[in-house]
């Protein structure tokens, strides 16, 4: 191998080593979109990069720490919190936040994990502060539409539905809320934001992902719900029975009315006919009462006496010619 060739190889290897060394020591680094970087020199902050791109640094001296610029989220712990009326509820909050000042953030936390930890505490405390100061319905509801709806429904439908509604919805007016969930969430966020600017953080929102009764309360709420449903069921049943009784009463009423009405009508008809007949008889027979009596008696004898096994005396007028031709006895 010639000397020049050897030289070439040595220089090639040196160049390769230099290149590797150069890139390995990292004078170039990339800040990715959605991230930001804090540059520290011997532990003190020498600069930040909040715009994505390719940057230089002094190898071995400058340290680069990157943080997300993206919106981050934190889950609060499941907390048992008493409301203003001292009911224990379990609130599961979640929060969105971002690092607004990477320098402050670096000074306060260095790593994201410790920030999560601290932030979780802050969110929990804000949640607790706000919920303890408010009634349960303020946290659960956001407006008063629930009451508008109930009254609307009672007006809308027919009588029977109205009757049921009035039975079922007694004392069912929900207490009105003045602020509501949205407002309380804003309060929580504000409360948390009082504490976090010194950490270079902004809390965007804190929202309850879920609100439920604590376990020991749940069973009694179930019981209340069951009783409430039972009450409604009973109302339906009793309404049904009432309606049935109403029908039975109506039945009895109409039955009696109809049959007595029919009796009255028929007696009237008969009476009127009897009267008419009497008048007809009287009008005719008054012309000669004596003859009428005679004629009627004859008619009567004919129809009635025939049926009797009777014995007659010849003293009857009928037999007067039996003893003499001139009818003299």
């Amino acid at each position: 191998m010639s000397k020049s060739v050897k030289k070439f190889y040595i220089s090639l290897i040196v160049i390769a080593l230099l290149v590797i060394f150069f890139f390995a020591s990292g004078p170039l680094y990339i800040v990715k979109e959605g991230y930001q970087a804090v540059i520290t020199r011997f532990g003190s902050i020498s600069g930040t990069h909040t715009v994505a791109g390719l940057y230089f640094k002094v190898p071995f001296i400058d340290q680069v720490t990157t943080y997300p610029k993206l919106i981050l989220s934190t889950d609060g712990d499941l907390q048992r919190i008493p409301t203003k009326e001292n009911q224990f509820i379990v609130v599961d909050t979640t929060s969105r936040w971002r690092i607004t000042d990477p320098v402050q953030f670096y000074k306060s936390f260095k790593t994201l994990d410790s920030a999560y930890n601290r932030l979780s505490d802050i969110i929990d405390s804000s949640t607790r502060t706000v919920i303890t100061a408010n009634r349960l319905s303020e946290i659960v509801r956001s407006s008063n539409i629930i009451n508008e709806r109930t009254t609307g429904a009672a007006e809308a439908e027919d009588d029977e539905t109205k009757e049921i509604e009035s039975l079922v919805n007694v004392n069912n007016v929900n207490e009105s809320v003045t602020r509501g969930r949205g407002e309380l969430c804003r309060e929580m966020t504000e409360d948390a934001n009082k504490l976090v600017p010194e950490y270079g953080i902004e809390v965007i929102d804190i929202v309850p992902r879920q609100i439920k009764y604590s376990d020991e309360l749940t069973q009694s709420v179930y019981n209340r719900m069951i009783k409430e449903r039972n009450q409604v069921a009973q109302a339906y049943r009793s309404l049904g029975e009432g309606k049935k009784a109403e029908w039975m009463g109506k039945l009895e009423n109409e039955k009696r009315t109809i049959s007595s009405g029919a009796y009255k009508k028929s007696e009237e008809l008969k009476g009127a006919a009897d009267a008419q007949a009497a008048r007809i008889y009287a009008d005719a027979y008054n012309k000669d009462p004596e003859f009428y009596t005679f004629w009627k008696s004859m008619e009567s004898y004919k129809s009635t006496l025939k049926n009797y096994d009777a014995t007659y005396s010849t003293n009857m007028d009928y037999f007067k010619y039996l003893y003499s031709a001139d009818g003299k006895r």
Binding site: V140, R141, N174, Q210, I211, K212, Y213, V221, M225
Partner: peptide, 8 residues
């Protein structure tokens, strides 16, 4: 979840 009339 909880409803407006505080039922589950």
């Amino acid at each position: 979840m909880l409803t407006g009339d505080l039922n589950i």
